[in-house]
Design a protein around this nucleic acid. Structure first.
Lengths: 182, 182
DNA sequence: CTAGTGACTATATTGGAATTTGGTCACGCA
DNA sequence: TGCGTGACCAAATTCCAATATAGTCACTAG
């Protein structure tokens, strides 16, 4: 995994061969296939690492926020900031994440599901404290929020919106918060 | 233009040569460059035609809707439906539109601006009739709505969300309408 | 002066042979 | 029995010469 992250980060997913990784850890190529079903599986594992970091930043944001609204703001801010950082500082790893979103790899699907779970917690909290409205079915809300935030959460789409950071996602979140008003 | 639309639609932008277009209209290649600065300029012109049709469907939707909320719904529904139709029935033309969005051609920028203008009219109407809230600055609202609807308005992004039609954009619009509630 | 073009060039694209690469498997060695 | 591999194959990728294409310009016919 360490070798894979290093190589993918330096040479990109396409340019690193499984043989390279094997040599780096001093084993044969065949042995790697005892642990990973395919090169793509290695890519997914690395992708999961990246997306975990992104989500961790989102969770950290949630922890920092005091009110539910503030948690929501910082949740997305953490995600977007970390994703953008990844883009600028580790473009080649970012490309794997974008590719995983494009190809609908399980890693990307899992990322969205975890994000939805975190989001749900925020909304539920906001409902308890009375910050958010309670009429709309919660799952519909979570789904809709993820849909409208996709342009900034999905690495594949975020890369087309980097010019508008950080104002654009802030405006989007403002809209989302207005939609949650009681 | 007719020749270009026919050729782009049948063979795609990349596979049709300027010489093909010249031959189709019975002039020399050089003559075409009296009217278009480049092949890309021809592509843009065709792209504008496509996006105009999409926006026309949006305008038609506005006309059909009775209330502002209904206009908004039908506006986006018209845009998304027409874009998706273009994708399925004229993939090669759609690809030009997607490419234009990716490369930020003026055609794509103009499309977004016109969309924003139409949107603004709807919102203003909704404010007059009391359907929508009036606190938030109108331009901020329009900008934010376009941002969150990008996943479905932008051809480049819509093509990654075709599986979720037509439910996803409906849910997104529902969220937008909630955000507009007085 | 206007409408239109053939001939030309630098860049991009293609085809397909040669090479790499992802992936498998029978096997060796402790 | 379990850790580990060289040798192998089909499919993908690279490479490069041949070709095609976008774009220009001096030019002509009317």
């Amino acid at each position: 995994m360490d070798a894979a992250e290093a190589h993918f980060s330096r040479y990109g997913y396409g340019k690193t061969t499984v043989a390279d990784l094997a040599k780096a850890i001093g084993f044969s190529k065949a042995y790697i296939y005892k642990f990973f079903d395919s090169k793509q599986a290695i890519g997914q594992a690395i992708c999961v690492q990246c997306l975990d970091k992104v989500l961790a930043a989102g969770e950290a944001g949630i922890a920092e926020g005091k009110t539910a609204a503030e948690k929501l703001r910082r949740f997305f801010s953490g995600i977007v900031t970390t994703s953008a950082e990844l883009f600028f500082e580790d473009k080649l790893l970012y490309d794997i994440a974008a590719h995983s979103a494009e190809e609908r790899w399980p890693s990307a699907m899992a990322y969205m599901e975890r994000a939805q779970a975190l989001l749900k917690e925020i909304i539920l909290l906001g409902r308890e404290t009375g910050e958010f409205e309670r009429k709309t079915p919660i799952d519909e809300i979570c789904e809709a929020i993820l849909l409208v935030m996709q342009s900034f959460m999905n690495p594949l789409m975020l890369k087309h919106n980097l010019d508008d950071l950080p104002e654009a996602p802030t405006k989007a979140v403002n809209l989302v918060l207005r939609s949650l008003a009681p």
